[in-house]
Design a protein around this nucleic acid. Structure first.
Lengths: 216, 216
DNA sequence: GTTTGTGAACCGTTTCACAGCA
DNA sequence: TGCTGTGAAACGGTTCACAAAC
């Protein structure tokens, strides 16, 4: 059973990036990679890569490197994408429709199995081949379809109440696209994807870059 | 001239969140906030809030707190959203169209002024009221329209070449929605928004949450 | 020669704790 | 009493450096 030790957040983020590089190498039938190459792809130091892989308990071979397929599988196991995750999307606006149409998710182990909206006028329409359902169907669908993840793509003012509904329905995690910090029970994990914060980070970095010479 | 001291990345992220709360309070005509309240909204400790505001050189009043409008303005100044930013969007697929349609950007100081696509079949179509332009028009448009930010919403395989084109055209920063690490000149800032990494982070947190009791 | 695994030093950020001001 | 500002301590993650394995 994996998940022995706690994995630091920065390490998790890098594991995602290593996995992308490994999958690229898999298509090229490369048998091994060095920590240096993985580090270059992920923008991390090579010692960092070795530390990260040590944390998840994966060993390489001195002088050779790491086995591409074995390491890829090990990372998938640790992250948990070796199994398929089923998600319910709430919000059929711009962001919601784009997510529903994003076919790539499926290959990556995620599947949106139902779409909901609070707006009665939107309920009944078709989004990416799925009928938009009313919020009253949420709890039933989550149970029936074994939904583990809720995706929030509604305006900020209704984000919290949607989160409450998802938690009540029994999801294990929430991916939140609304620019609002959610308050949820401890047993539920949340991750925010916030365009606005990303843009603000970018703009501030631009300003700082102009002020002082960049490093690296 | 603002931007005296360097602002740590984690602080930048929290400043975004403080600003959201401040804007909410502004609509309610609240005159002051305590570090405790800002911290609660942003999920940070109160001492952390005071440290952050100290870093940007903003002082509160002991026993009272911080002035809502003054602090909001100070944060906007530091981040750089007190002025309007003009952006060029590359990629008119699902993600690109959703971004183009995302009206909220405008209120937040960002404006997409042009849309480009590499695919000849897409060029000429209309997206959010804008005609999709060919990549050959990129450099000219960036100069003519004073575009500071490029937004990449293309498949991963073409992300790097789009980045190169944006850098050559003279943008100062790139917001990257493609799941690929970009390599750009030092003078250009980049920020990644990666759905897949976000989902993987979520899934791993779900696993860890099941394994051990959560804190907080 | 190449590349791993890891203790030790290092560094930046967070938390603590408390003096000082309203 | 309520709340800020800030040194000092604690923490967690990163980088260094090198012995060991191939």
């Amino acid at each position: 059973m994996p998940g022995r030790t706690r994995v630091p957040r920065p390490t998790v983020d890098r594991l995602s990036l290593y996995l992308r590089e490994l999958e690229r190498l898999e298509t090229q039938d490369r048998g091994t990679v060095s920590s240096r190459q993985l580090g270059t792809a992920a923008g991390a130091a090579e010692a960092q890569v070795r530390k990260d892989l040590g944390i998840i308990g994966h060993a390489g071979q001195a002088g050779i490197g790491y086995s591409v397929p074995l390491l890829a599988e090990a990372i998938r196991q640790v992250i948990g994408v070796h199994r398929q995750w089923r998600a319910a999307l709430v919000g059929a606006g711009n962001v919601g429709r784009a997510l529903a149409a994003y076919r790539r998710f499926r290959e990556e182990g995620f599947e949106i199995v139902a779409v909901f909206d609070e707006d009665e006028a939107v309920v009944g329409r078709t989004v990416a081949g799925m009928e938009v359902l009313p919020m009253s169907d949420l709890a039933g669908t989550v149970k029936r379809e074994s939904v583990g993840i809720g995706i929030i793509a509604v305006p900020p003012d209704s984000a919290q109440q949607v989160a409450d509904a998802l938690v009540d329905a029994g999801v294990q995690g929430i991916l939140n696209f609304a620019p609002r910090r959610l308050r949820v029970a401890d047993r539920v994990a949340t991750v925010d994807v916030d365009f606005r914060s990303a843009l603000e980070r970018l703009v501030l970095e631009i300003s700082q870059r102009k002020a002082s010479p960049a490093r690296r």
